[in-house]
Amino acid sequence: MATPLPAAALLAALRAEGVRVQEHGDWRTHSRNHKGLWGPVYGVMVHHTVTSGTDRSVAICRDGYAALPGPLCHGVIAKDGVVHLVGHGRANHAGLGDGAVLQAVIKETALPADKTADTDGNRHFYGFECVNLGDGKDPWPAAQLEAIERVSAAICRAHGWSQRSVIGHKEWQPGKIDPLGFTMDSMRARIGARLGGAAPPAKPPARYEPFPGAAFFAAGRRSAVVTAMGKRLVAEGCGRYKVGPGPDWSEADRASYAAWQRKLGHTGTAADGIPGRASWDRLKVPNS
């Protein structure tokens, strides 16, 4: 259980962690406290905005809209890594989520699947919106990911929390997908390393799917390998799926793999969307 950091203390914690901060207007007193309690706080929640452009995203997150008044978070993390502070106190970012997830955050244990929406998250979480369309295509620049890491670590350090106190909206509220484009487990690992915590238990060496040959990727192919490949492509920011990925080799798989090939610098027939050994080995598809 923790009392929320005063605005000045939050700002100091962020700057001490090396976060580049921009303050907006009356952010120190801009809140929804008149609608409910703020605190005790137990963690940090990460979102994506489903918008593009820093100025537009900051304005929406600060002011909200008719159905959901602002602030919609405490800070907006732009693609260049600058964190725009827009509110302090209760904010309309988390909504109702799973009480079992909150208990796991409090105990800093593994998260259960979010199944219910019975607990007020706006009261208990700091919230940060990250500028991203959330379509699986919009990239996550290194500077933005590092800012998420630094912001989260700063707040955890100030409260004496571990990286397990940082969760994604998709881990809190059923039906949510944000943030999409990186995994929260990978982000928590980064935060934990920054906090200098004990190393996680050693995992067995990763086993990757061997290249099945170009002929494998043809119409009518149905395999868990195709699903695993698609998930890796999404994680690399190369997903071109409207639905999925799934086990059936499709035009969306080919378009996604072509995006991966182009990301690696291939052009022409070398970026036709049919996997080759070199690009496949670099994709590191988990053994399926």
Rank of each mutant, 00 (worst) to 15 (best):
D248C: 11
R194C: 06
C238S: 05
K35V: 13
A193V: 06
S256C: 06
L111E: 02
C73A: 06
R164S: 05
A7M: 03
D114R: 15
V166R: 02
A78I: 07
I155Q: 01
I106H: 14
G268V: 01
A215R: 14
G273A: 09
S250H: 08
W140N: 07
K231C: 12
G64T: 04
A153P: 02
P201G: 06
G265L: 13
M229P: 07
G81Q: 03
P201K: 14
A154F: 10
V285A: 03
R150F: 02
V151Q: 02
A258L: 03
V226K: 04
A228N: 06
V83E: 00
P4T: 04
A13Q: 09
V83K: 01
A224N: 14
R232E: 15
A2S: 13
A271R: 00
Y126G: 06
P210L: 02
L68H: 10
D26H: 08
R123T: 10
V21Y: 04
R62M: 13
G43I: 02
G239Q: 01
F211Q: 00
A110C: 12
Q173Y: 07
P200R: 11
N92R: 09
L111T: 01
N122A: 04
R262E: 08
I167V: 12
K170R: 14
Q261M: 07
Q103S: 13
R62C: 05
G95N: 05
A143W: 01
A199N: 03
Y241S: 03
V105A: 09
R56H: 14
W249V: 04
K284Q: 15
V166G: 00
D80M: 05
A117T: 06
A94C: 11
A13S: 13
G230D: 01
V82R: 07
R221K: 14
E209D: 13
D118V: 07
A59P: 09
E209A: 13
D178I: 09
G230Y: 00
N92C: 08
F182V: 03
L145D: 03
K35N: 13
G53Y: 09
G36W: 02
G134V: 06
